[in-house]
Simulated assay, not measured.
Amino acid sequence: LLLVEVALVVVFDIAAVTDPGAQGLSLHAFNPDTLTGAGVGTALCFCIAAFLGFEQAPVYAEETSRPHVLVPRVMFLAVAGVAVFFALSSWALTVATGPDKIVGTAQEQSAGLLFFLTESRLGDTFTDVLHVLFVTGMFAALLSFHNVVARYAFAMGREGLLPAAFGRTSGTSGAPGTGSLLQTAVSAVVVIGFAIADDKPNGDPTQPVLHLFTWGGNIGALGVIVLMAAASFSVVAFFVRRGAAAAQGVRLVTSTVAGLALLVIAGYTVKDFDVLVGAGPDSALSWVLPGIIGLAAVAGVVQGLILRSRAPERHARIGQGNEAFQLDKAASS
């Protein structure tokens, strides 16, 4: 279903290019000047959010036959494929409306921009099918995130960061069932909380959904930005501590540049967070929501320090994954 959805978007891209707006085939969308000015932080955070998921490949490393070959291959293919697809499709949107009208049309149509443009070029039936596939695509994305979170819970249970029950698989399937149930419970609590807290100012039933999507989505994007920055700097620390800085010079330079760039994006994201969540500049949401990431980071550091002082052996196993698990299993047997 997801592949069919992508194929239909490509059909729209072709239709937009063959039937452009009043300004014709303009390449204005690729002008670097569009990356300056107000709102750049919002755009960068949205781009990171659009790419969320490409970093999930290592989560499945233990379930592949050649993880050192397949995981990097999948990640590079995912980044390249999604980048090309998003870039061309976004450009097609500007071609369909014209570069001078894309902002106004997007503000007017909001999330329905693509459907608005397909209806005029490809008809009602095509647009109806695209609506259905949009829903199935969202389900596929949610299922993917659910699986990854369940595996994170499994890894944390196995390494002593969560109760040991989360570090065991279910039955003969080998699936992290306890982690899956935890993810389901957390999701249910959050969704029900947003539904109950809705004050229905205009009787609009979509408001809690929009709040949950914008608040949760942007908090998640900011969290992933911070995590990727930390991972970039950890690459530098890993090789420097092992005396391999000279041999891994290229990796250290690229990781440092990536980490610094991600920190800049994180700074812009926090600065423009009121825009991202649709709140006013004086709204408490502009600092309360990003503060959740800060609190999580502090809590993680504190937990790590406590674990290192009280259970150094367990602390040393963090991040070792299946290798440490298999060594412990062999030692006990």
Rank of each mutant, 00 (worst) to 15 (best):
P176H: 14
G167L: 05
P163S: 02
S187L: 13
G167E: 04
S170E: 10
T184A: 15
F134A: 12
G174K: 06
S180L: 15
A150D: 14
S173M: 02
R151V: 04
L143E: 08
L143G: 14
G167A: 08
V129H: 02
S173C: 01
G171P: 02
G160Y: 12
L130S: 11
F134T: 14
G157S: 11
A185R: 01
F166C: 10
L130A: 06
R151H: 00
S187P: 01
G179W: 11
A164C: 06
L182I: 05
A165R: 12
F139D: 00
H146R: 05
V148W: 08
T169S: 10
V148H: 12
A165F: 07
P163R: 01
L161K: 11
F154N: 02
H131V: 11
G157L: 11
H146D: 06
P176C: 13
L161P: 04
A185F: 08
G167C: 06
A165Y: 06
L181M: 15
H131P: 05
G174T: 03
L133M: 02
A164Q: 13
T169H: 04
A141K: 05
L133V: 06
F166T: 10
G177E: 09
R158G: 07
N147F: 08
S180M: 15
P163L: 00
G179T: 14
A175D: 03
M138L: 04
T184C: 15
R158W: 11
A188M: 00
A153E: 01
G179K: 12
A175K: 06
T178G: 09
F145A: 13
G157K: 10
G171T: 00
A153T: 05
S144H: 06
T172D: 08
P163T: 00
F154I: 03
L181V: 15
E159Q: 12
P176M: 15
H131L: 12
A141H: 03
F154P: 02
S173D: 03
V135N: 00
R168E: 11
P176L: 12
A164H: 09
F134I: 03
S187E: 02
L181C: 13
P163K: 00
F154E: 04
S144W: 09
A140N: 06
F139L: 04
S170Q: 09
G137F: 01
S170C: 07
Q183N: 15
L161N: 09
R168W: 03
G179D: 12
L133E: 02
R158D: 05
L133Q: 07
V149E: 10
G137I: 02
F154D: 05
V149R: 09
G171L: 00
R168H: 11
A141M: 05
A188F: 05
H146Y: 11
T184D: 15
R158F: 11
R168A: 08
G171Y: 00
L142K: 01
L142E: 00
S144K: 07
